[in-house]
């Protein structure tokens, strides 16, 4: 379990980083952020990148900033940064609650928010958050900058819209209105494992009725996404067991579940029903 030989580059500025990345990208050069996914893959020699562009010393990527409308998270921000709320209001509370479900403490001390998005594991909590809340990815390369909406960013299991020479420099999450309710639930066989299914829900109440419902499901399909059918089952209805149950059933019907040797599609669908239902229960 020793990785194949590689050259590690340690740029100090963003321009330098983008320059090296564009130079080494054709030679399977990769960004190294927290290394919590990439390093194990290299140890198993499932990946043998010839170059690593280590961004851990690049200035200007460690920010968590709020302009009153969006929260910007730089590429060096680690999972552990969210253990305590980073902004007042429901978004800070939501991120803090979700963060605790990612892996184990030592991994959260190294792994990054943007690294999770770039890695695009179907079960990643941050991918689910980004898809559900409609994040915007700020992507940079020597060719310039582009912005990609979460719905267009995730392209499948560990596959994103990022080109090889592009750095995910920042992710932007819209702040949630102060009266937003949220709920989150995930199921895994052991504490800290990647979820076999997860759900994040947010909504507001207008005259006691659910409005602006967002129901995100992760871990069940190649990429996390919002489930319109479940949202429709909620909007305009009072929060409560009947409608929660209906939304959970709608989500379970809507997904095209991933299967693997330990998980049939049928069981994964059952889990989707369970996690959506419990995320909704958690929202009250």
């Amino acid at each position: 379990m020793k990785p194949a030989a590689f050259i590690r580059h340690v740029p100090k500025t963003l321009d330098e980083a983008l320059k090296v990345l564009s130079d080494v990208a054709p030679d399977d050069g990769r960004v190294l952020a927290g290394g919590q996914s990439l390093v194990p893959i290299m140890a198993f020699r499932l990946a043998k990148p010839a170059h690593l562009v280590d961004i851990n010393e690049v200035e200007g990527l460690q920010h968590i900033a709020c302009d009153g409308k969006t929260l910007s998270i730089g590429a060096r921000v680690r999972h552990a940064a969210f253990h305590k709320p980073v902004v007042d209001g429901p978004l800070g509370a939501l991120l803090s609650y979700v963060a605790r479900h990612i892996a184990h403490y030592p991994i959260r001390m190294r792994g990054t928010f943007c690294g999770s998005l770039a890695h695009a594991d179907p079960s990643s909590e941050w991918c689910l958050v980004s898809a559900t809340l409609g994040a915007t990815m700020v992507v940079k390369s020597t060719r310039g900058e582009r912005r990609i909406a979460a719905a267009d960013f995730f392209e499948g299991i560990m596959s994103t819209a990022l080109a090889e020479d592009e750095l995910l420099a920042e992710v932007r999450l819209p702040l949630l209105a102060a009266d937003t309710k949220f709920g989150f639930y995930e199921f895994s066989r052991r504490a800290g494992d990647f979820a076999m299914a997860s759900s994040l829900v947010t909504y507001r109440l207008a005259g006691g009725k659910i409005a602006d419902a967002r129901v995100g499901v992760g871990g069940a399909e190649p990429s996390p996404r919002r489930i319109a059918e479940a949202e429709a089952a909620l909007n305009g209805n009072a929060p409560g067991e009947d409608h929660f149950r209906a939304a959970a059933a709608a989500a379970a019907d809507a997904v095209e579940p991933l299967e693997d040797h330990q998980t049939t599609g049928e069981y994964r669908r059952d889990l989707v029903r369970a996690v959506v239902h419990r995320a909704l229960e958690h929202s009250i």
Binding site: F44, R189, R190, A191, G192, D193, F194, H261, Q262
Partner: peptide
Amino acid sequence: FLEEFLYDEAGEPLSVTFADYLMPTARE
């Protein structure tokens, strides 16, 4: 509850890392 060395029909082992061969932790 957790630990099992699984194989496919061709005899390929499916539990070759700690991500697939699940050891109980303090939480379990």
